[in-house]
Amino acid sequence: MSTKNNQPDWDKIAEKFDVWLPHIAPVGEVLLATLGAQPGDRILDLASGTGEPALTLARRLKGHASITGIDSADGMVQVAQAKAVKERLSGISFRCMPAEQLTFNDNSFDRILCRFGVMLFTDPLQGLKEMQRVLKPGGRFALAVWSTPETIPTLRWSYDVFSKRLPEELHPPLAKATSLGAPGMLEDLLSEAGFSGFSVESKTFDYQFRSFEELWDTVEASDVLKQQYDALPQNERGKIRDEVGRFARDFIHDGQLRIPHEYLVAAGGK
């Protein structure tokens, strides 16, 4: 991953990013079900971050597959590898590598997955071409990307409140995060990368919190908006929280904060 396009510094926030993992776990479950990995498969998890969903897959396959997770942020890779070592998981390893420059041979993997990574690649098309190159004939891929800006409420809220206070180069990365969500965009890229016979489906999951305070504590604990916060005067920070809180009020039901987010799942073979 890269800090370009206003993205967080993934190396620096690696150890804190895990606070989000329970909230995006449903997307990982959809990808794993779609991927259909089997014992004996050689599997690649692109933009694996701090290790998911590769680690979950390794636990389920119990060493009966070869799983490689890659990420371009070395800090993320170190956190992921430490988890695998701590759990004594076999058949899984992590490497620092940009998706656009995979060092694997052609036709190396039976299964390839990527959760919320492709749209953040420096060059998404080149990353998809590399994915197609290293996937075996008859192999299968599954990936997820965010949908359109209006369907990603939490990031859109952050963008709205920060963008009127900060210069453009410090705006939250709403455009980059949703860059493949427009109708037909992902399909066109996959076709250009050499894939055929794939499907793209729109799906929804909820961020669920006991309160807005719990949501905001997670945002702050993860440091995903650190560069935006650091650029603000101290007295503006409370205003940011209050404004986002007003957006969130419409999503409180039965004492729970449930915020629907839309994403796209692409799956197919080679």
Results as ranks from 00 to 15, higher is better:
E243Q: 06
T218P: 07
Q256M: 10
P173D: 13
Y159H: 12
Q228K: 09
K176S: 12
K176V: 14
A65R: 10
M97T: 01
G28A: 14
L215R: 08
G268E: 09
E220Y: 13
I67R: 08
R42H: 01
E187P: 01
D106Q: 02
S211W: 05
F94L: 05
Y263T: 12
Q234E: 15
L215P: 02
G181Y: 03
E15D: 04
T68H: 03
M1G: 05
L35T: 00
T178I: 02
E243P: 02
E130N: 06
R42G: 05
Q101G: 09
D223M: 06
L125T: 01
F198A: 12
L125V: 01
F94C: 05
G197H: 06
E213M: 04
P167A: 01
E100Q: 03
E192N: 04
V30A: 13
A175F: 08
W146V: 05
A84F: 12
S199T: 13
P172A: 10
I240M: 02
E29Y: 06
V79L: 13
R111Q: 05
A177Q: 03
R210D: 10
P26T: 11
W157A: 08
D188E: 15
I92T: 05
Q101L: 10
Q7D: 07
S202I: 12
F198S: 03
D106P: 00
K226Q: 12
F162M: 01
D106W: 01
L180D: 04
D106T: 01
R258Y: 06
Q227V: 13
S211M: 06
R111M: 03
S90G: 11
A142C: 05
W157K: 08
V219S: 05
E15Q: 09
L32T: 02
S222Q: 10
V145F: 03
P53G: 07
I24V: 15
D45P: 05
V19H: 07
A33P: 01
L135S: 04
Q101P: 06
L57S: 00
N235T: 11
T122Y: 11
S222W: 14
G268F: 10
M131R: 01
G139A: 10
T151I: 11
V219K: 06
L170Y: 09
A221F: 00
Q228F: 04
D45L: 13
D110V: 01
A175T: 05
D254E: 15
L264A: 00
I24T: 15
P98Q: 03
K176Q: 09
D18C: 12
G268L: 02
Q78V: 06
I70L: 04
V30C: 11
R60Q: 15
A65E: 04
F212M: 13
W157P: 04
R140M: 07
D41P: 00
Q81H: 04
E243L: 01
L166S: 05
L264P: 02
A175E: 15
A182L: 12
K12M: 13
S90N: 06
L125K: 12
G197E: 13
F251C: 04
L155W: 14
H171M: 00
L215G: 13
L174E: 03
E187W: 14
N5M: 14
G36H: 03
F104L: 08
T50C: 11
F251T: 11
R95A: 15
D242G: 08
R258Q: 10
K86W: 09
L170A: 05
A54H: 14
G181M: 09
S199V: 08
W10Q: 04
